[in-house]
Each structure stands twice: as C-alpha cells, then as structure tokens.
Amino acid sequence: MTGAIMSFVIDADIARSSGMTEHPVSSGARKLLETVSAGGHKAAMCPALRKEWRDHKSNFATRWMASMVAKKKISFIAPDKKIKTYIENHVPDGNDKEVALKDSHLLDAALSVDKIIASNDEKARVVFCKISEGNGEIGTILWFNALTDRDFFCSTLMSGGFIPKNYYLCPD
C-alpha cells in the first residue's frame, strides 16, 4: 500500500471526539483525521454515516470535513447492504444483533472502498469479530481505534507496512 491513496471509513464517534484538547481520546481522534488529510488520503461516506457525522461532529471535525470536501477527498458512496442483510438473516436476535445492525453500514461502506474502518467502538469490533466466523468477507476488513491504535495507524499503516492479524475483524 505504500504511496497508494487509500479510502477510510471513519465512524462518527471519531468526529464527535476529535477536539482541540490533549485528552487522549480527543487528541487520538484529531491525530487520526490529520494523518488521513496530510497523507492525501480519502474518507468514504455512505448516507447513514454522513448523517451521523452531521449530527455528532465536533468543531474540529467540521473544519476537517470542509477542508476534505474542498480538496475533493470525500467519496460519497452508496454501497449495497450485504453485511446488513447477512446480519438480519444469520445473527440470532439479541444484543449482538442490535450492536451489529447499528454499525453494519460501516462494514458495507468499507467493502466498497479499501476495507479500512476507524472507530473507537470496541464493543462493535468484538461483535463483528464474532460474526466474521460465519462470514469470511467481514474478516477482510481492518478496524483501527484512534486511541489504542493511533501510533500504528499513523506510522505503519500509512507507510504501507505489514498489518498483523489482530487489526482484522476475524476471530482470535
């Protein structure tokens, strides 16, 4: 991936928490957004994610988004709903299904671009890893947390380095 322009699906929780404070969550989210922009990469947004961003973005994320739109670095996509349909048909009713359906649009969007999601929602990540046992396509998606994976995201991923299995949405 070195030198390649990548498209990231960036969850609205990153937009909401990216602020100007040095709190680890705020600074991690901000650094992730800055790294995507500085690297010339793109963000991909489906209609559901775009609405979440509009409803929850911070002042920093508002400026970041405006800058990315001006640079034509936002891809507005309309992915199919394969993962959502899979969840509806194959995941038993309960908490896991509820969590997965709430964020299924992130996976559907990621499968339409470069299969990379940035989100701080570890609960959703765990559920998707569990669900990937029955759907191998989910296991091809990378998931990064702006707080715990910030250094890896900003250095190794952006330079095209090796990505260990633990960043993929697959069972351990």
Score class of each variant (00 low, 15 high):
Cys46Lys: 02
Glu122Ala: 12
Leu49Pro: 06
Gly136Thr: 10
Ala12Trp: 02
Lys72Trp: 05
Phe162His: 12
Arg50Cys: 10
Leu101Trp: 01
Phe152Leu: 04
Lys97Gln: 14
Lys51Met: 12
Gly40Ser: 03
Glu133Tyr: 12
Gly160His: 07
Leu101Phe: 00
Ala29Gln: 02
Arg150Leu: 10
Met65Glu: 14
Asn135Gln: 11
Ala43Trp: 04
Asn135Met: 05
Gly161Gln: 04
Lys71Asp: 12
Lys71Leu: 09
Met65His: 13
Cys170Ser: 14
Glu88Tyr: 02
Cys46His: 04
Asn89Phe: 00
Glu137Met: 09
Met1Trp: 08
Ser26Tyr: 00
Ala12Met: 05
Gly134Leu: 06
Cys129Met: 14
Asn145Thr: 04
Ala109Tyr: 05
Leu147Trp: 03
Ser132Trp: 06
Glu22Gly: 11
Phe76Thr: 10
Thr62Leu: 12
Cys46Phe: 02
Asp172Ala: 10
Met158Cys: 04
Phe162Met: 10
Phe153Ile: 13
Met20Leu: 15
Asp80Phe: 03
Ser37Ala: 15
Val91Trp: 00
Leu49Gln: 14
Ile10Lys: 01
Gly3Thr: 07
Ala29Trp: 00
Trp53Ala: 08
Ser18Met: 01
Val25Met: 08
Asn166Lys: 13
Leu32Asn: 12
Ser75Asn: 12
Ile131Leu: 09
Ile77Lys: 00
Ser155Val: 02
Lys84Gln: 10
Ala4Gln: 14
Ser26Arg: 00
Phe162Gln: 11
Asn145Lys: 04
Trp64Pro: 10
Lys82Asn: 15
Ser17His: 15
Lys165Trp: 03
Val69Cys: 05
Ile74Phe: 00
Arg50Tyr: 10
Asn95Met: 07
Leu33Glu: 01
Trp53Arg: 07
Ser155Ala: 08
Asn89Tyr: 00
Asp114Met: 01
Ala146Pro: 15
Ser159Met: 10
Ala38Met: 02
Ser112Cys: 12
Gly161Tyr: 07
Pro24Ala: 05
Trp64Glu: 07
Lys84Arg: 09
Val126Glu: 15
Leu49Asn: 14
Asp103Asn: 15
Leu157Gln: 06
His41Tyr: 05
Cys129Ile: 03
Ser58Phe: 06
Gly160Pro: 07
Ser119Lys: 01
Ser104Ile: 11
Lys51Thr: 13
Ile131Ala: 11
Ile83Ser: 09
Lys73Leu: 13
His90Phe: 07
Leu32Trp: 06
Asn135Val: 01
Arg54Lys: 14
Phe76Val: 11
Ser17Val: 04
Ala110Ile: 02
Gly161Val: 06
